[in-house]
Each structure stands twice: as structure tokens, then as C-alpha cells.
Design a protein around this nucleic acid. Structure first.
Lengths: 125, 125
DNA sequence: AGGCTGATTCGAAAAGTGTCAAACTAGACG
DNA sequence: CGTCTAGTTTGACACTTTTCGAATCAGCCT
């Protein structure tokens, strides 16, 4: 049961194209929904949502695990596991440089998710 | 049958205010992350994501359960359960009119979630 | 080499989730 | 009233997820 196999083949998310029309504009096909859901699922945990925010808002566009871990009341392995989840969801990239590992957000992916939820009608109520 | 027990007190999501600066702009506080995560979590299932899309893109802004259920290869109770999850996440509202129950999207909430993920930098890569 | 520190992987326990069938509730209608 | 249809709730089961400690891997440094 290899944890491999990116659930987000770049044929759906991560490219330069908008990936798909907004949720509210037309019905999302089943296969697209299946491809997109893991990204939302990854954001659906408070710890991972914070991690995502810390990474996306980091100084040089990247955050060191050594800075992320102590920000939570959780063990190293647990943080590492959450980071892996974000990675496998295609939301972040990891790079090792010497002793430390740095994570950076895949901003294009986040933008596409945003676009999916937007245009939902900004009329009041 | 009140749609109570909202884990998203309107102090965070659902109001007219943007709820919070974009994820990538500044670090999301723990309590805000805890309040927002359930909404993403609800969207993190392929069936619920499709339901959300069907509801948000429906003709008159609302969708009848009687139209949603047969669109899936799942039992009525299962669809009902997913709809409840969306409801409790604050993403949809339900209204019974006679025999049928209609769901409609809380567009303001979707917009806020979109705003949270947006402004993440539209520069390529 | 050997040891130190940062990070991931492994294995396991507790809690949570998705699904169904069966039982139930809400209206409509004869 | 009795019964039919639409939806929800309940109870159960398999599966997944969150979390940890222990073990491991990857680079430094002396």
C-alpha cells in the first residue's frame, strides 16, 4: 500500500490553466471532484491549515521544518506526517538543503482552488 | 428540525466581512484555523464536493434532495448524511417545503473561503 | 570513524468517517 | 384515519486518520 501515487495528476490541478469552472457555475464532474477533494481534505485539519498558512506566508516563500515544528504542541513525527499529507495533496513542495528541509507553497494550486470556490455570487446573502 | 450546532460561529465565517486575511498574507491564528478547517474538511470528500457543486450551480439557487440523491450510486441515508455534514459545516442551508427538502449554498461562506486561498500570488509558479 | 542534530518512517492505539439496512418522522392524499 | 412517498436518524461495521514513541535516515562537525 504505497503512499505514493499523487492523487492530483497535473492534468487537473497545478498547471497554468484554471483547472475547471467555478463550483457554482456548472456541476463538477465526478472524476474532477475525485481529483480535487484530496486538496480540500488536506486543508480540512486545523494543524495542516496553520502549517499551510505558515508556509505560504513565510518570509522568502519557504519555511523550515525546524521553525514549523516548535510552533505546535505536537511531536516531530506528527508534524512530519501532516507535512507529508500536504505534499501528497500537491499543496506544497519540499526541498532538503543540508541539514534542514524547507517547504514552499504551490501558489498556483491554491489559486485554482480559490477560483473554484469564487464567483459564487458576491451579492449579499 | 433546527439546523443548529454550527461549528462555524458567525463570528468567523458567514458574515459580510472577509473573515480574515488571505492564508498567504499572514499566519492564520490557531483558533481561526480551528474554526475554518471544518468547512474545508466538508469539501474534502468527492461526494460532498459534487453535492456542493450541484447545489451551488442549481437552477433557482436551490436543489431538491430528490434530485441530488439519484445522481449518485449511494443510498439515501448516505446522501442525507453528507448533506448534514455540509449543513453543519455552514456551507449550505436546508428548507423543507411540503414533501420536499431544498438545499441552497451559502455563497458568502464560499466566497470567504475563496478569498482565504486567493491572493496567493498569481505570478507563474 | 563516531557522535550529534534535524527530519522521516515504522508500528501501534484510540478516535473518527463512510456506508448501509432498518427504523423512524413529515407531509400529502384518498 | 390509513397509507404512500421523501428524508432523516439510529446502529453497526469496515476502513481511515491522528497521534505517539522507537527506530531509522541524512548531513554536519570534531
Amino acid at each position: 500500500m504505497p503512499k505514493q501515487a499523487t492523487p492530483l495528476p497535473h492534468t487537473v490541478l497545478g498547471g497554468d490553466t484554471p483547472c475547471c469552472p467555478p463550483l457554482a457555475q456548472q456541476r463538477l464532474p465526478a472524476d474532477v471532484a475525485t481529483a480535487l477533494a484530496p486538496a480540500f481534505k488536506a486543508l480540512g485539519d486545523p494543524v495542516r491549515l496553520q502549517l499551510m498558512s505558515m508556509i505560504a506566508s513565510a518570509e522568502n516563500g519557504e519555511a523550515c521544518v525546524c521553525d514549523l515544528t516548535p510552533a505546535f504542541d505536537l511531536s516531530g513525527p506528527t508534524i512530519s506526517h501532516h507535512l507529508r499529507t500536504l505534499r501528497e495533496a500537491g499543496l506544497v513542495d519540499a526541498e532538503r538543503r543540508g541539514t534542514w528541509v524547507y517547504y514552499r507553497a504551490r501558489k498556483a494550486v491554491l489559486s485554482q482552488l480559490a477560483a473554484l470556490l469564487a464567483n459564487t455570487g458576491q451579492s449579499p446573502q
